[in-house]
Design a protein around this nucleic acid. Sequence first.
DNA 1: CTTTCTTTCTGAACACGTTCAAAACAACGC
DNA 2: GCGTTGTTTTGAACGTGTTCAGAAAGAAAG
Lengths: 224, 224
Amino acid sequence: MPSAKNTPKAEETGRRILDSALDLFREQGFDATTMRDIARKAEVATGAAYYYYPAKDAIVADFYQRSCEEMQPRIEAALNRVKGLEARLRALIAVKLAYFEPNRGVLRSLLRNGADPRHPLSPFSPDTAAIRAIDMAWFGRILTDCGMRIPRDLEPHLPGVLWFFQMGVIFFWVIDDSPKQARTARLLDLATKSVAFLLRAASLPLMRPLRKTAIQLIEIVAHP
Amino acid sequence: MPSAKNTPKAEETGRRILDSALDLFREQGFDATTMRDIARKAEVATGAAYYYYPAKDAIVADFYQRSCEEMQPRIEAALNRVKGLEARLRALIAVKLAYFEPNRGVLRSLLRNGADPRHPLSPFSPDTAAIRAIDMAWFGRILTDCGMRIPRDLEPHLPGVLWFFQMGVIFFWVIDDSPKQARTARLLDLATKSVAFLLRAASLPLMRPLRKTAIQLIEIVAHP
DNA sequence: CTTTCTTTCTGAACACGTTCAAAACAACGC
DNA sequence: GCGTTGTTTTGAACGTGTTCAGAAAGAAAG
């Protein structure tokens, strides 16, 4: 965030640096883009970029932040357009993929550090907790709105589980090199179907022991 | 691999570089360890390390390679010591965790690039295909030896699925900061139980449609 | 206008991974 | 011994992300 840089001139410089960076990330990827490239394109000295962003990673972090904000209305719209748990799940994730589509190259930086929950850019890190919370809230809303009977014991874990599921799809999409990411499309379709099915099955009395085990697993993995 | 460096002197230098590197990785982590540190500790010039290893990553790759080889007899022994699918699954994974225990710090470099199947160090990359194949073969052996009825359609996918499962446990273990990695221990226990249960359930006629869907998902994710 | 203080910007410098031309060494034929 | 050929080792140099002392540009006060 070009933040606490309050004068209009500074605001403009910050924007120019961010835009230059994202342009270059898109064109040639995160790794191939040099801080010197970014500065040159933004017509400032190398060090200036560091006045606005404490590190190269921070530019991507800012991109995440802004993406999250910009996507809110689109998600809202998509959920209004569509009913039912399965369709909404798919719609929500589809909105994200569509939004990120032009920046798939930028997201590849996720692969570099995404698995390390200590790294600032990881979707599991404390640094991204705010974004994560906003995202999870949507899954919570989908669940309460869908009118489906959800077992009491499972309910509090579900937003997190669905968020994690979504994260998996996004990871796969970033990696997916099939034409037009066709494999991701198929995965998204079948996987949301399966999730909806499992959720329906979860409240059957017969499933109680299985559900209890699943909850234990979730608690082991999710608990701090 | 200090390879094709054939004279005894060269062999010795290569070893010294590898050992110095692993010592330092253990002590202060992969990132905090400098190639210059490694060279200094091995009492060679900076460039010498690059005569034996094309990159810093390659040292870790060699470590993987050697680890894999060294673990073969231990795995064999563990599987002879124990019967039944569940116990053997747990035993196999436990052998790996025990073996890697002194080098948890080294494995943290997995987090940095493990999720990117193009990165040489990723367990999903072409570079690690040989190790992966060896590992998967063990799971195949466990499956055929356990005498359990495995559905024909599912069978060819299972070694890969179990290997992926194992990879998940290892990832979790690397991240796990609970005392003595107690959470991983609980996860391993409960998760292997669950896997064994699911595998037993998978051949019930009632489960056929669910199994077919699962196989489709597996094929989407696993296919080149 | 001059002085002082803050914000914005500069470019040289640092440590890192990596490369490379050339030095040192070893092995062999003479 | 000497020269030739191939292996091993060196250390300076490059490009990277990042830091930092201070220059430049504004803004506020006298």
